[in-house]
């Protein structure tokens, strides 16, 4: 078992509960142990940094300090948490005055941070530590013939923290292929879904979401997969809003990559939180279960 400190991020307990559940379900079978930070707090995300750029670094660092006590790499499945925590760590290493001020403030909560926590995205851990070979060797139901659009979103790969190409990344494609599915060409794979602005600027965001759905479909996708909680909710929950606005008929399931992996590992749909997806992934499930039955008949 490889051990990691685990920072789930707020959304894995709510809007992206399917992500939180499916991570817990696949971690054991894939040989990783995720030790959740006790008492973790929100990283602050871009929102905090846009209201107070320095205080934002402090609130993110509280979690880095909790992780440093464990002496393990810190893993998060949320792209926004990933860049917020990574960036806070980098800024503190460059700015010694800020580091000492942050530590003075952390001290009132009996915490300290020395700048030694590697922050890693779960996608990187799956692709680089677990490896696609090990995932492939654990697959029970190969997702043969399933055409999947691998959607990275922005903050998994940008700004460039170095684990994949920031414009045309491949790690998620490789994860999809390790399950036996086909990662279709998806030119907009790292373009923006509209993020949080889907709430105050819905029309603008719906336009971006439509482009992504359209690009996935015209390349033959039967479903989209993403590791990002915000991308998932925008593409999944707002798909009906896109249909209302543009008089379209999209009905494209959007699965978290850990849900897709879980299905291939033979984990049941409820444990993977698939009943929390808005656009029903039924068609994908049927294909897989059908193929599974054929395989057992063959044997």
């Amino acid at each position: 078992m490889k051990r990691y400190a685990y920072y789930p991020g707020c959304s894995t307990e709510s809007t992206a509960i399917g992500l939180g559940l499916s991570i817990k379900a696949v971690a054991g079978p894939l040989g990783i142990e995720l030790e959740e930070l006790e008492d973790w707090t929100c990283c602050g995300s871009v929102q905090y940094g846009s209201l107070d750029e320095l205080e934002a670094i402090l609130v993110a660092t509280r979690n880095l300090a909790l992780a440093e006590k464990k002496g393990l790499d810190l893993v998060t499945p949320c792209s926004s948490c990933f860049i917020t925590l990574t960036s806070a760590g980098l800024q503190l290493r460059k700015n010694h005055l800020l580091m000492s001020q942050v530590n003075e403030a952390l001290a009132v909560a009996n915490l300290e941070y020395h700048g030694n926590v590697p922050v890693r995205h779960l996608t990187e851990v799956l692709a680089s530590d677990v490896t696609t070979e090990v995932i492939a060797s654990n697959v029970k139901y190969r997702l043969n013939g399933l055409k999947v659009a691998p959607y990275y979103g922005c903050q998994l790969v940008r700004p460039d923290y170095g684990f994949d190409d920031p414009d045309f990344p491949r790690s998620l494609d490789r994860l999809v292929e390790s399950l036996g599915a086909e990662a279709i060409p998806f030119p907009l794979k790292s373009r923006c879904c509209g993020g949080t602005l889907v709430i105050p600027e819905e029309d603008m965001a719906l336009g971006l979401i439509r482009k992504l759905l359209d690009n996935a479909l015209e390349n033959g996708a039967q479903c989209i997969t993403t590791p990002c909680p915000l991308c998932q909710i925008n593409l999944d929950a707002y798909q009906s809003r896109v249909n209302n606005k543009f008089k379209t008929h999209y009905n494209l399931p959007v699965l978290f990559i850990t849900q897709l992996i879980g299905l291939a590992l033979g984990i049941d749909a409820v444990s993977l939180g698939l009943n929390t997806n808005i656009v029903s992934p039924g068609r994908v499930l049927d294909d897989i279960l059908g193929a599974g039955q054929e395989a057992s008949h063959g044997a």
Partner: peptide, 29 residues
């Protein structure tokens, strides 16, 4: 839809970390 699919919990998950967070922010200011 989000509510019915358990993706929009009615009650906040209040973590005890919020108190230490508030103290730190006050000190930092």
């Amino acid at each position: 839809k989000l509510l019915l699919r358990r993706r929009m919990p009615l009650r906040p998950h209040k973590t005890s970390g919020r108190r230490s967070l508030a103290r730190m922010v006050k000190k930092f200011r």
